[in-house]
Design a protein around this nucleic acid. Sequence first.
DNA 1: CCTAATAGTTAGACAGTCTACATATATTCT
DNA 2: AGAATATATGTAGACTGTCTAACTATTAGG
Lengths: 186, 186
Amino acid sequence: MSRYEASGYWYGEGQSAPEAVDLLNLMRRYRDAERKMRAQTRGSMGMNETDMTALRFLLREHRKGEVPRQRDFAEELGISNASVSALIDRLCRDGYAERIMHPADRRSVGIVPTRYSDTEVRETLQQMHERMMSAVDGLSADERRAAAKFLHALIASVEWNEHDLGQSAQRDHELRDVPGSKLASS
Amino acid sequence: MSRYEASGYWYGEGQSAPEAVDLLNLMRRYRDAERKMRAQTRGSMGMNETDMTALRFLLREHRKGEVPRQRDFAEELGISNASVSALIDRLCRDGYAERIMHPADRRSVGIVPTRYSDTEVRETLQQMHERMMSAVDGLSADERRAAAKFLHALIASVEWNEHDLGQSAQRDHELRDVPGSKLASS
DNA sequence: CCTAATAGTTAGACAGTCTACATATATTCT
DNA sequence: AGAATATATGTAGACTGTCTAACTATTAGG
């Protein structure tokens, strides 16, 4: 209990539907749950966020039959080439990946996952993925349509920002006046 | 275009509904869009992830009439007291927060946001939040119900892990032997 | 009072990132 | 072919955010 859902608690068929704010709260709950879960996985594997993301990218590419190069990681992760060098060092040191010569370009280094890393990740993330899949499969066609519409609406709302803002921010850092409070000591 | 939706592209009423995998892909798209957007906001304010999360927590508490202490930040963010000290130093240095004496406990420091920080954040994140609200408001009651059901299902799938794993994770950090593979070069 | 618990700070170490520079290979133009 | 330029990666040194451990100040219990 103590779930804090603002208005509608059940949504059970004939009941009152959830408000927009309830849905956004649910999204936040989902995001937090996922973040927590990923943090746990990372923790148990002794990895940081970036390295974990890199490893998942590597496994994804590998399954597609691609052999990514370091520059691909830099682009995917949004970090510098130098940082990728260090990152791949760590993945290799800990036995998750290996450097091979790239077949087509001798300047490049091909990155491949070890069998170890595949099973390691599969045992954690993929189980959850399968549970999510079967859970969502239990929805009706109409419900899936509605969920997709919902998500499309949210994505559009978020992506709208990227074109709009991005310039006005770093202004007047001096004139900060503090709110009237100052309710110190007592 | 080039949206990659796997099977159903329209979901337009009588059309074929999205598969479970499509919905999970949409969730990923949403997550990536949100992450990107937050990264941009952080960047434009010159802050890192943790500091931004802390500032949003601070504003949330302040609006509720609470005056959080440093230990509250440590708990919320999952970092040590020492790191919170440094974090609050940064927030104060950059004019987003101020330390005040806590009314009830002279050991504690109360943290309050400056008016500056409120407007700064409001101008960025809150606009998006309002757009999301109105977008979701455009859905029908049935659609909102379905979206809620969808999210509940996902949350359950993710949180299931926390009870299941979590103990069998932090074990054997020593004996991890690297795969037999070693399938290096070509 | 004395002891233990709690809130915060400081110091020192470490990890992951960056920029700038260095090296090796590829590509293109005469 | 030879030179100039572009690409892919590696290395060095600095910076930031985190941690643990030790320290001060305050509170709570006996």
